[in-house]
Design a protein around this nucleic acid. Sequence first.
DNA 1: CGTTTTGTTTCCAGACCGTAAACGAAGGCG
DNA 2: CGCCTTCGTTTACGGTCTGGAAACAAAACG
Lengths: 162, 162
Amino acid sequence: MSVDVVRWPEQATRLAELREEGLPRLILVEGSGLPLVTADPLEDWIRVPADAQDLQLRSDTLIRRAESATELRPEIDAAGLVRFGDKWVALPPVEARIVQALVEGWGDVVSRETLAEKGWPDASVGGRNALDVHITRIRKRLRDSGMALRTVRSKGYLLEAG
Amino acid sequence: MSVDVVRWPEQATRLAELREEGLPRLILVEGSGLPLVTADPLEDWIRVPADAQDLQLRSDTLIRRAESATELRPEIDAAGLVRFGDKWVALPPVEARIVQALVEGWGDVVSRETLAEKGWPDASVGGRNALDVHITRIRKRLRDSGMALRTVRSKGYLLEAG
DNA sequence: CGTTTTGTTTCCAGACCGTAAACGAAGGCG
DNA sequence: CGCCTTCGTTTACGGTCTGGAAACAAAACG
């Protein structure tokens, strides 16, 4: 992730583009005019000539903001490997299918029915408790992965960071 | 809404307090040191001696950010999950329906009658106290969510930030 | 073979939700 | 002012339901 640096008012068009795309940007204000008014946290400005240290500092801050704005999402491959950030966990078939449904609905509640359908596509599972047991097992496996499987009682489960 | 101005490093303690409270703040950096590294959009800094116009501009920007942050409204999904900012709370069915009515009337008074109708659509609830009890329970659940359920005596209740 | 995955049973803890009761705050009235 | 009514808050209790977890056994896998 990097910060685009634009000169104002010279590169006004470029600035407008960056704003449109929502990219972090640092404006070098030439002259003594008022540059802009925006509440966007991904924008900052500094007057030229600028101290190199100050410029670096404001640039770093923008990068931090941009990074904290993009939230991390897990991925799961066909082999049942769940990746989240720099961590990964291997899951057995049934649990991999269940977690796949949870990953697709990342941050949202996924109903028990949906999870049961995904976990056992041929609908060959018997008792209602089979899912519960796998939920417990998934929790155990995900314990050190940076993710948490939360219960939303009478509604389902949701996977989130934390 | 106003911006607190603190001197750095002289008022470091005051700065820590403001950060804790999440209030917008502008830091006057004395000397040539590096002041801080924070991704918080409600914080900005400027070196002294500062141009009055620049100071005003940065202050205005902080206010704008703070104000746009207070325009935050909660959302409630079909599963009974109430989201407010980056926080969420799961509510059981009856309370989810009650809160839905309060969310729709965000900031406005909603009558006890309306809440009772929404909470029990089939009108099968007995005593008037059932609603009272659920109000207490909702308050407890929302305690750390950034929202508060206020009483307007003989009129109803309203949900607001804070 | 031993290990891992998987389903079932069984028991327990806790959530949900209405009712009742005790307490307190607010307002009306003589 | 004191008394009373009304309204709101909170706690406690019990019935019911749901999810969690341990234990066991069978099947799959290497």
